[in-house]
Computed example of a mutant assay.
Amino acid sequence: MYVVTNAIRVKKGYAPQLVERFKERKGIEQSTGFIRLELLVTEGLEDHDEVRVCTTWENKDSFIAWTKSEAFRKAHEQKDRERLDFVLGNEMFSYKVALSVEA
C-alpha cells in the first residue's frame, strides 16, 4: 500500500471550513487503486490549525495515475483555491506502507 498526506495549514478557527469542503469529493473515490481518504485535524496548535488529508492507495502507480486524471484536475482547479484565502500553506508527504495491523 501507499499513503500520501497533505498537511494543510489554515488560519486559526478555519479547520472546520476546510473539512466541510472535502465532504463533496470530485471523483477520487472512483479512481483505480484508491482505498480510502481520511481527514485528520491536528490538536494543540497555537498559531494556526492544520488539516492533514490522508489518502491510501493500492500502490504508488495508482496515486500517480490519479494525479494525471481529469478528476484530479477538476478537484484542484484554481477557481476553487481562490476562495480559500484562509489557507496559509501546505506540505505533502508520501509513504510506502511497511506494516499494517487491523483489529
Rank of each mutant, 00 (worst) to 15 (best):
M1S: 14
M1N: 05
M1V: 03
Y2A: 02
Y2R: 02
Y2V: 01
V4G: 05
V4T: 14
T5C: 09
T5E: 05
T5W: 02
T5H: 11
A7H: 13
A7R: 04
A7M: 05
I8H: 01
K11Y: 09
K12R: 06
K12V: 04
A15S: 07
A15D: 02
P16H: 11
P16M: 09
P16G: 01
Q17Y: 13
L18E: 05
L18R: 06
L18F: 06
L18D: 07
R21Q: 15
K26I: 05
E29G: 07
S31E: 12
S31M: 15
T32N: 12
T32D: 13
T32M: 08
G33E: 10
G33C: 02
F34R: 02
I35Y: 08
R36K: 15
L37M: 15
L39M: 03
L40I: 11
L40G: 06
L40P: 00
V41K: 14
T42V: 13
T42W: 06
G44C: 01
G44I: 00
L45F: 12
L45E: 07
E46P: 00
E46T: 01
E46A: 13
D47L: 03
D47I: 00
D47N: 11
H48W: 02
D49V: 00
D49H: 05
D49G: 08
E50R: 10
V51H: 06
V51Q: 03
V53P: 00
C54S: 09
C54M: 15
T55E: 10
T55R: 01
T55Q: 09
T56M: 14
T56F: 12
T56C: 05
T56E: 09
W57H: 03
W57L: 11
W57A: 00
W57Q: 07
E58I: 10
E58G: 01
N59T: 02
N59D: 11
K60P: 04
D61M: 08
S62L: 03
S62R: 07
F63A: 04
F63E: 09
I64H: 13
A65S: 14
K68T: 03
S69Q: 14
S69P: 09
E70P: 02
A71Q: 12
A71Y: 02
R73M: 06
A75T: 05
H76F: 12
H76E: 08
E77L: 09
E77M: 12
D80Q: 09
D80P: 08
E82N: 10
E82I: 13
R83Q: 13
R83I: 03
L84A: 15
F86T: 00
L88C: 08
L88I: 07
N90L: 01
N90D: 06
E91M: 04
E91L: 10
E91T: 09
M92Q: 11
F93K: 15
F93D: 12
Y95C: 10
Y95R: 03
Y95L: 02
K96S: 11
V97D: 08
V97A: 07
V97H: 01
V97E: 08
A98N: 13
L99F: 11
L99T: 10
V101S: 10
V101P: 00
V101N: 01
V101W: 05
E102H: 12
A103D: 15
A103P: 14
A103F: 11
A103V: 09
